Amino acid sequence: MATFDRTGWGLIEHRRWEDIVTMVLGAAILVSPMFGETTGNTTMVAATAIVGAAIVILGGLEQIFLRRWEEFLLLLGGVWMMASPFVLEYAGTLRNWHIALGAAVAALALLQLWQDRNRDLED
Rank of each mutant, 00 (worst) to 15 (best):
E13Q: 15
N118K: 11
A104E: 06
L121I: 12
V31L: 08
A109I: 01
E71H: 11
R67M: 07
E18Q: 13
G40N: 04
P85K: 00
A100Y: 09
T48D: 11
A106G: 03
V31T: 08
A106Y: 02
A91P: 01
W80E: 13
I55W: 00
N96S: 08
D120Q: 15
E71I: 01
T43H: 07
H14V: 08
M34T: 07
L11Q: 03
R15M: 07
D5R: 11
L88M: 09
L121V: 12
L113F: 11
H98S: 11
E18C: 10
L111D: 04
A54K: 02
L76W: 09
D116T: 14
A49D: 10
G60I: 12
D123C: 02
E18I: 03
I57E: 01
V21M: 06
D120G: 06
P33K: 05
G10M: 07
T42S: 15
Q63I: 08
G40F: 02
R6Q: 15
L113D: 07
I29G: 00
R67K: 14
F4S: 05
R119M: 12
E89M: 02
N96M: 06
G78T: 05
T43A: 12
D123P: 15
E37F: 03
R16L: 07
A103Y: 01
G60Y: 05
T43C: 02
D19L: 06
N118H: 06
L66G: 05
R119P: 04
M44F: 06
H14F: 07
D120A: 14
M44A: 14
L94A: 06
G26T: 09
M23T: 06
A53K: 09
I20K: 01
W17P: 01
G78P: 01
M81G: 00
D19I: 04
E122T: 12
N96D: 13
W114A: 13
G52A: 03
G8N: 11
F4Y: 14
D116R: 13
L61T: 04
E71L: 10
A28R: 05
R6P: 12
Y90W: 14
F35A: 13
I29V: 15
F72M: 10
L101H: 02
E71R: 14
E122Y: 14
F35H: 09
A107G: 15
T3S: 09
G77T: 00
A106I: 03
A49E: 08
A100M: 12
L94M: 10
N118Y: 14
A46H: 02
A47P: 03
R117H: 12
M81T: 02
G59Y: 07
R67E: 12
L11F: 11
S32N: 02
E18A: 09
I57H: 09
L113S: 00
V105Y: 07
F72G: 01
R117W: 08
P85Y: 02
E37L: 09
G36P: 05
V87P: 03
R95I: 04
G92F: 06
M81L: 12
L108M: 13
A103T: 13
G102K: 00
R16M: 06
V105E: 07
E13G: 08
L108P: 09
A47T: 12
L110M: 10
R16A: 11
E70T: 15
A104C: 11
A54C: 08
W114G: 00
I50R: 04
G102P: 00
P33G: 08
V105H: 11
P33W: 05
G10S: 05
V51E: 02
T42H: 10
G102L: 00
L74I: 07
P85C: 04
